[in-house]
Design a protein around this nucleic acid. Structure first.
Lengths: 145, 145
DNA sequence: CTAATTGTATAGCCAAACTATCTATCCACC
DNA sequence: GGTGGATAGATAGTTTGGCTATACAATTAG
């Protein structure tokens, strides 16, 4: 175990904990990070079974059942009976959900932009690459799950 | 408003949302992200008033009162009466809390390391720099609060 | 066909999040 | 010194996201 890597990962996760809260407060709205996270996963992965969606979000299945029920009431997602298994549901993002997610991302960008406005083009590309690197690690874990 | 920056910030926050959950599941323990976040803030900032700690964590003061009460029961933090204001408390991390945080970071590093093991030295330094860049943005916001 | 496995809903519990309100303390001003 | 306004933190109440355990129906394996 590489202790420099461990240190970096500890710092990275500490910083992401705080950025998550910063984002929640910055837009000042009442929709939860879990909702945005779920919509975001659906946007990038396409429709998923409820259990798959739980895995992708790293929450338990009953938790995801509850989150999906809330999103369904808002009509932000669609529940589609899975044609190959009568027990299962396909969960897809709905147009309203896509619009809401896009709006949130816009408002988030507006709110956070002043904080990042002083970064150089090089620094921004560092952030961009890091985002991709982390995103790829998360997706790798999904495949292994 | 720079739409590329907005896009990047939306992606960054989406990815950090998911990394936060990945970290919570990866270590499999019952202590919440809020507790770790709070201990982490206290480690880097030193003792803070309860309200300041709430601001640094981007949560409301009553939320922080509760989190601090839990941490106090675990003896992970110390509550010290503020000498200059009879209403206020200084909250400081206690040795038990520091040990718990260090242990958590170690276990987190162990759990996440396989995901990041394939990164090159250059990629790891990208992550490291990004972590610093984000961390600096968060601290800037604190000063402005 | 039967037993084991699987997908999701339900139940119950806890903690983190919020707003509103209250009480005691502090501070500014007259 | 006294009064009014502001502030620090506790308390109350509500909602939602987390969890484990369990139930039931559908699917799969032997």
């Amino acid at each position: 175990m590489n202790s420099e890597l461990s240190e970096l990962l500890g710092d990275l996760v500490s910083v992401t904990h705080r950025l998550t809260r910063l984002a929640a407060q910055a837009t000042g709205d009442s929709t939860s990070p879990a909702a945005w996270r779920t919509l975001s996963v659906l946007t990038s992965s396409g429709p998923l079974r409820l259990g798959e969606l739980a895995t992708a979000n790293r929450v338990s299945q009953p938790t995801m059942t509850k989150i999906v029920a809330n999103l369904n009431e808002l009509e932000w997602i669609k529940r589609i009976a899975d044609t190959s298994d009568a027990r299962a549901w396909q969960i897809a993002i709905a147009p309203k959900g896509q619009n809401a997610l896009n709006d949130w991302r816009y408002r988030l960008g507006m709110a956070l932009e002043p904080l990042f406005a002083d970064l150089t083009t090089r620094e921004l590309s560092v952030l961009s690459e890091a985002t991709d690197l982390i995103g790829d690690r998360i997706d790798v874990q999904e495949l292994a799950a």
